[in-house]
């Protein structure tokens, strides 16, 4: 592999590609793609995700459409520690604050992004140097009816607060599985949303995230030994 492959033609091809990456180190993958390994991830957030996207032929990046638009599949890397526990929450999509009040769960970008996800676990134990961290076994996942209902409940709770213009009340503590958190590399970044009096206000851009408890449950349900063996 010396350059990024074309987008996969179907799910099976994507899964085969992803399975072939399992066990390989980030260094090996970066070398295969002629990418330079960064010193650390603190200043290169998203580098691992981009690397995996490139390796699998994803095209959408951070756009609202799925990473594999033809297949309707979103790619999510899942950093895990030595015990197999996710080390951070998972960014799903930016919160479209201006229009969010008009969206139901059924046509929300969150549901669209999570409809079909290819999870790629990545070793992220802090003691492991970036170069030797390895990619894990892929998991092609769609929410179960129960998971979908739980996420819908969270969506309703979170969007009600936005709809009512009560941004100050919308903290990361809301939502059982889904949460809304400020999003943006620059804390001074601003976007616009309707305030309580119905006028547009400047506020920090926010994103939807899946809590670690949600992804930990996925790992426990789908991987051997709950991911920890």
């Amino acid at each position: 592999m010396s350059s990024a492959p074309l987008p996969p033609k179907n799910e099976a091809e994507l899964l085969t590609r992803a399975a072939a990456l399992a066990g390989h180190s980030l260094k090996a993958l970066a070398e295969a793609l002629d990418r330079r390994l960064p010193e650390d991830l603190a200043h290169h957030k998203g580098w691992v995700g981009e690397l995996v996207e490139q390796a699998l032929g994803a095209t959408a990046g951070n756009r609202p459409t799925p990473d594999f638009p033809r297949l309707g599949i979103e790619l999510k890397t899942l950093p895990v520690d030595a015990a197999g526990h996710p080390t951070e929450s998972t960014f799903v999509t930016a919160a479209p604050l201006r229009i969010i009040g008009e969206l139901s769960w059924a046509d929300s970008p969150v549901r669209s992004k999570l409809a079909r996800v290819l999870w790629i676990p990545v070793e992220a134990d802090p003691v492991l140097p970036l170069a030797v961290r390895r990619l894990g076994s892929p998991l092609l996942w769609s929410p179960s009816p129960e998971e979908d209902r739980g996420l819908a409940v969270d969506w309703e709770e979170l969007t009600t607060l936005v709809r009512e213009g009560d941004f100050s009340a919308l903290t990361a503590h809301h939502g059982r599985w889904l949460q809304v958190r400020p999003k943006g590399a620059d804390s001074r970044a601003r976007t616009q949303a309707y305030g309580q009096d119905g006028t547009l206000e400047a506020t920090a851009p926010r994103g939807f995230y899946l809590r670690r408890s949600f992804t930990a449950a996925l790992v426990a349900a789908h991987y051997h030994g709950g991911g920890g063996a």
Partner: peptide
């Protein structure tokens, strides 16, 4: 059968 989260080398 279940996949290992990260394959064992």
């Amino acid at each position: 059968i279940q996949p290992l989260l990260v394959p064992l080398t």
